[in-house]
Design a protein around this nucleic acid. Sequence first.
DNA 1: TAGTGCATGTAATGCGTTACATGATTTC
DNA 2: GAAATCATGTAACGCATTACATGCACTA
Lengths: 175, 175
Amino acid sequence: MEPTAVTWVVLGLIALRARTGYDIKRAVDTSIRHFWAASYGQIYPELRRLEDAGWIEGEDDPRGGRSRRVYSITPEGRTALRGWLAGRETRVEMRDESLLRLFFADALPFDDALGLLRGRYEGYRQMLEYLRALDDGTGRMSPPFVDVVYRWAVDYCEWGMEWCQRQERRLRRAA
Amino acid sequence: MEPTAVTWVVLGLIALRARTGYDIKRAVDTSIRHFWAASYGQIYPELRRLEDAGWIEGEDDPRGGRSRRVYSITPEGRTALRGWLAGRETRVEMRDESLLRLFFADALPFDDALGLLRGRYEGYRQMLEYLRALDDGTGRMSPPFVDVVYRWAVDYCEWGMEWCQRQERRLRRAA
DNA sequence: TAGTGCATGTAATGCGTTACATGATTTC
DNA sequence: GAAATCATGTAACGCATTACATGCACTA
């Protein structure tokens, strides 16, 4: 099978523990959507592909009259996942509308342009608030590297807030 | 006209100075592709749309027998740009394959997982190298907020390198 | 004269989101 | 009994990239 972007998200989450498609979507939205999003329209077809390839195994496990299919990883799936983890490609794509605005901020009066920096600061602050709300004591239970990535997000926000303040001061001094 | 993602990239670059489609593509690739990419397949159709809307004005300015069309911003275009700049939406989407790997790194033996942190460090280092190569003295001539975003990229890389080292030390201590 | 850069475009393809459809179970 | 949550899926749409086509100008 030809792996795509969503392959590793789905396979990786199932490797952590057995899950339904719905579980996967929830995990994506709460944990990793900040650096890799995925929608139902990707997840359910991908589960089929992964099962056809023998990398995961689905088992029907209905709850009452509600259908439910739980997927777990196979040895072949684990091998494939480790192969990808060993890879060295380090593609980063981002679209950050606030950076884009900042880039063009010279079109504004100076004070309004500084306002964009404060807007960016606010964006970081809100994101940090959201992250802290996620971590109600449960964070400490996460596997070490899941926790590392959570820390990355928190540390990045804190760094970003300081950076915005520093730049605002610098630009005021220069003016 | 209904603005899309690429609208502001094109309009903003033309607001900085008059440009051809080819110029825009070059500027995107050297300056802003780190936080907002755009391809020919978006840029040329968008130039049409913007001209139809009266936000930019094209003028044929061939070089010898080679056709060439230079676009400049109109007063209406400037107004529209400022309107967008005043906006507060701060959408950030990113796909960072190295963070994704790190998130799933618990599937690896500890030392291999630490290797992923060093891989991320390398990614930051290479990006920083690339950024520094861009700035051969000319950077100081950029408009202040263009320069701010350049600094953001540089500072982010430096922060990221330190972060990777810090985490590696922390995880080694914990183990 | 061959290769690189300037310049304009488009068609095909692929990827991903949005929106919808359906229905059971749990919680308030 | 209403609302939220669990659960599975797909069709339509839109956005973006890739790849290609075309051709002039400059320079080594």
